[in-house]
Simulated scan of single mutants.
Amino acid sequence: MELSTETATRWVERWEGQQQRYAIDREERFTVIADVVEHVTAGRATPLIVDLGCGPGALAARLAGRLPHAEVLAVDADPLLLELGRVYHGSAARYVEATIGEPGWLDTLALTRPLDAAVSATALHYLGEHTLRQVYRQLATVLRPGGVLINGDHLSPNGAKISDIAANVGLRHARRQAAFAHEDWQSWWTAAGEDPDLADLLTARSRRSLPHCEGNDLTAADHVALLREAGFEDAGTVWQFGHSHVLVAIR
């Protein structure tokens, strides 16, 4: 059964609310990522941008809105989330089903030219250190010189005591924003699983071998070290609130 715009809207809007529970100043973080992409692609006729672990396409759609002349690829392993994004956001991006880090995943993107930017928001922390190191190296080979990798994610600052303080600052900020009034991740998926309008997509999803969360406890400095090792010229944090970072690496 074809997914209706009404159903996609209902579930994407709930997803947007749910994500605010976890990402401090989510909209500001998206804005910073878009600012960086716009800066590094200034003067380029048709920038090529890929959003890694896009979910229903929130960041990809915002980038397409900011840069209407760009080509945006939205990549995720989950067919349900991808279809929600396709229907809700329309032609803002090209949606590609691929599991980041698996053999041949870059080939699935069918890139015909170097990337200007690869972005990700609250997704790469699911990768283990070994997989992440490999993904960083792979992305370095497909980004043009001067292109960027931008990672907006939860990263611990260096030092346990500073990390604890940063976590407390983030928690207090989230409470002031009433972030915990939103439903949580598990509640969203439980409710989605009970919606008959999503039955076909849920069946398709159940037939996929979705990636499990390997996870890592890398600090921001650890990420910078891995990025330099992978061949990036420079890397560092350009925005931070609590544990929420926007990390930029320049090819």
Score class of each variant (00 low, 15 high):
17 G>Y: 05
142 V>E: 08
70 A>M: 04
166 A>E: 10
74 A>P: 07
91 S>K: 13
2 E>N: 11
28 E>Y: 04
65 G>A: 03
185 W>F: 08
161 K>V: 14
215 G>L: 09
107 D>F: 09
171 L>R: 11
153 D>I: 01
18 Q>A: 15
189 W>K: 07
108 T>Y: 03
150 I>W: 03
113 R>S: 12
173 H>L: 07
50 V>D: 10
4 S>W: 13
13 E>I: 06
149 L>V: 04
251 R>M: 08
26 R>G: 01
161 K>D: 15
184 D>C: 06
29 R>L: 11
118 A>E: 02
220 A>L: 09
80 L>K: 03
71 E>A: 11
99 T>G: 12
53 G>I: 00
59 L>I: 12
206 S>W: 02
216 N>K: 06
88 Y>S: 06
66 R>P: 05
69 H>F: 00
161 K>T: 11
158 N>D: 15
224 V>L: 05
143 L>R: 04
110 A>E: 03
160 A>N: 11
242 G>F: 14
94 R>K: 12
216 N>E: 04
250 I>K: 15
126 Y>V: 06
148 V>W: 03
233 E>D: 14
17 G>N: 13
215 G>F: 02
23 A>K: 00
73 L>H: 08
212 H>A: 10
153 D>V: 02
152 G>K: 07
101 G>H: 06
51 D>Q: 02
237 T>S: 15
211 P>A: 06
202 L>D: 00
122 T>N: 06
182 H>N: 02
75 V>E: 11
96 V>K: 12
19 Q>W: 14
8 A>V: 14
93 A>P: 05
250 I>R: 14
33 I>T: 12
103 P>C: 04
21 R>K: 08
116 D>P: 00
39 H>T: 13
57 G>W: 12
90 G>W: 07
79 P>Q: 07
164 D>G: 09
168 N>F: 01
138 Q>D: 10
122 T>I: 08
151 N>P: 01
164 D>C: 02
234 D>G: 08
47 P>S: 03
36 V>Q: 12
122 T>S: 12
77 A>H: 05
40 V>T: 15
139 L>D: 08
101 G>A: 09
65 G>H: 06
192 A>V: 10
56 P>K: 08
141 T>A: 15
83 E>P: 04
25 D>W: 04
66 R>C: 01
187 S>F: 02
193 G>K: 00
70 A>N: 05
41 T>W: 05
158 N>R: 14
